[in-house]
Structures are given as C-alpha cells and as structure tokens.
Simulated assay, not measured.
Amino acid sequence: MHSSHPLVAGIVHEAPGSTVRLRPVAEDDLAMLRRFAVEPGLIGLDWAGFRDAAAPARRFAEDGYLGEQVGGLIVQVEPSDVAAGFLSYRQGQYGGRAPYWEIGIVLLPEWRGRGLGWRAQALLCDYLFSHTPAQRIQAGTHAENVAEQRSLEKAGFQLEGVLRACEFRAGAWRDGWLYSRLRDDPSPL
C-alpha cells in the first residue's frame, strides 16, 4: 500500500442509509478496473473499444493510482464496504500557468441512480481545493447523459458550454458538455 498519500485515511460523506467514502485503489479492486477495460457498455457512453486488461495492474504497481498529476480513487459504499466505482482526476493547465483538475467517474450499473456519484464528485472537489492551489475543477459529459448532468449540478458544478465535435464515438464526431466548479463556489456538502 502506498500509505504516504493523504487520501489513505479516506474521504467520507454520510447520508441517510449509506456513507460514501473515497479511498485509494487496493489490489482487490483491480478486477473491477479490468472489467471497465474489457466489458462493452459497462462504462456507458464512454466505451471506446477494448483496452489493455493488464494496464490497471501495471498502473497500480507504479503508484497505486495516486500520482501527483493523474490519479484515481475507489468510490466505496459503507457500511457494506463495497466498491461501487472509480473516480479519476487529471491535472491540466490553461495558458501554461493556471492549473486545473479534470475529474471523471464511473459507477457499476447496480450503484447508479442512488445519489452516490454527485456525493463522490463533491467529496473529491472539496479534497482537491483543500490540498492543491487549483482554482478550477472541470468535468465533461455527453449531451444525452442527463443523469450525469444532474449529478454534476448537484455536486456544485455549472454548465459552461458545448464543446463541438470533441469526441469520436460510435462512428461519429459528437459534442460534449463542459462543466466547472471554482474554488469560491459553495460546496454542496
């Protein structure tokens, strides 16, 4: 375990009926991450074809998914301690000097529609704003993914606009929607 990272203790949000916790990837989670790489449709509209099923194990061996600029955490539901999905973060820069984070989430189908996604995304934003100097966190989604649009809005994000023809999916170029949450925006938690 890569215990020097501050996320090892976990990030928690309690709500009636369940607690959402973000925690580092553990070796037992690699089977779920392999599934995301090789099961068509499991990650919804983001499916872009088969990926290297061994890549999650290589990444885990490299840094436990806790890189300084690119990382990922498991979305865990308590009290059952079940891994419900994966939340990623990647650092970028505008103009070479303005760092931001881009986040993404994928939940297993049985955990969708339960309010876990927005809570997990809000937890990660609060953590990143507390521990990094970034002013901005952004997330993109598909025009037809109404559930994720609502999730981002509940997590404190605002729609910025449409990114025209930003993604090649299912044989065609498609538009995406870009959302952001700024440091000064209130946390919904």
Results as ranks from 00 to 15, higher is better:
residue 1 M to K: 05
residue 1 M to L: 14
residue 1 M to I: 07
residue 4 S to V: 11
residue 6 P to C: 14
residue 7 L to M: 15
residue 8 V to D: 12
residue 8 V to R: 07
residue 10 G to A: 08
residue 10 G to I: 02
residue 10 G to S: 11
residue 12 V to S: 12
residue 13 H to P: 00
residue 14 E to K: 11
residue 14 E to M: 04
residue 14 E to H: 13
residue 18 S to E: 15
residue 18 S to M: 13
residue 19 T to Y: 09
residue 19 T to S: 07
residue 19 T to H: 12
residue 25 V to G: 11
residue 26 A to G: 14
residue 29 D to C: 14
residue 31 A to N: 08
residue 33 L to R: 10
residue 34 R to Y: 01
residue 34 R to K: 13
residue 34 R to G: 01
residue 35 R to E: 15
residue 36 F to Q: 06
residue 37 A to Q: 15
residue 38 V to R: 12
residue 39 E to V: 10
residue 41 G to K: 02
residue 41 G to P: 06
residue 46 D to L: 04
residue 46 D to H: 15
residue 51 R to N: 13
residue 53 A to G: 11
residue 54 A to E: 15
residue 57 A to K: 05
residue 59 R to S: 08
residue 59 R to F: 08
residue 60 F to N: 05
residue 60 F to L: 00
residue 62 E to Y: 06
residue 62 E to G: 11
residue 63 D to L: 02
residue 66 L to F: 06
residue 67 G to E: 10
residue 67 G to I: 01
residue 68 E to C: 07
residue 70 V to R: 15
residue 71 G to M: 02
residue 72 G to K: 13
residue 72 G to V: 00
residue 72 G to S: 11
residue 73 L to G: 13
residue 76 Q to L: 09
residue 76 Q to Y: 00
residue 77 V to I: 14
residue 77 V to S: 06
residue 78 E to V: 00
residue 79 P to Y: 06
residue 82 V to D: 15
residue 82 V to A: 15
residue 84 A to P: 12
residue 84 A to K: 04
residue 85 G to V: 01
residue 85 G to W: 08
residue 85 G to F: 01
residue 89 Y to A: 05
residue 89 Y to G: 02
residue 93 Q to M: 14
residue 94 Y to A: 15
residue 94 Y to M: 11
residue 97 R to A: 15
residue 97 R to C: 10
residue 99 P to H: 13
residue 99 P to T: 06
residue 100 Y to R: 07
residue 104 G to D: 09
residue 105 I to T: 13
residue 106 V to K: 13
residue 107 L to Y: 09
residue 108 L to W: 12
residue 109 P to T: 02
residue 110 E to Y: 02
residue 110 E to A: 10
residue 112 R to P: 02
residue 113 G to E: 13
residue 113 G to N: 04
residue 113 G to C: 12
residue 115 G to C: 01
residue 117 G to I: 02
residue 117 G to A: 14
residue 118 W to L: 04
residue 118 W to T: 01
residue 118 W to D: 07
residue 120 A to E: 11
residue 121 Q to E: 15
residue 121 Q to P: 06
residue 121 Q to A: 10
residue 122 A to G: 01
residue 122 A to V: 02
residue 123 L to E: 08
residue 124 L to G: 09
residue 125 C to D: 14
residue 125 C to H: 12
residue 125 C to F: 07
residue 125 C to G: 05
residue 127 Y to F: 14
residue 129 F to L: 09
residue 130 S to H: 05
residue 131 H to F: 10
residue 132 T to N: 10
residue 132 T to A: 04
residue 134 A to K: 03
residue 136 R to V: 08
residue 139 A to E: 07
residue 140 G to A: 06
residue 141 T to I: 02
residue 141 T to M: 01
residue 142 H to L: 08
residue 142 H to I: 00
residue 143 A to M: 08
residue 150 R to E: 03
residue 152 L to I: 02
residue 152 L to D: 05
residue 153 E to C: 08
residue 155 A to E: 05
residue 155 A to C: 05
residue 156 G to M: 12
residue 156 G to K: 03
residue 157 F to M: 03
residue 157 F to H: 06
residue 157 F to C: 02
residue 158 Q to K: 12
residue 160 E to R: 07
residue 162 V to D: 08
residue 164 R to G: 04
residue 165 A to D: 04
residue 165 A to I: 00
residue 166 C to T: 05
residue 168 F to P: 09
residue 170 A to S: 15
residue 170 A to I: 03
residue 172 A to D: 12
residue 173 W to P: 02
residue 175 D to L: 00
residue 178 L to Q: 15
residue 180 S to L: 01
residue 180 S to E: 03
residue 180 S to A: 13
residue 181 R to A: 03
residue 187 S to R: 05
residue 189 L to Q: 13
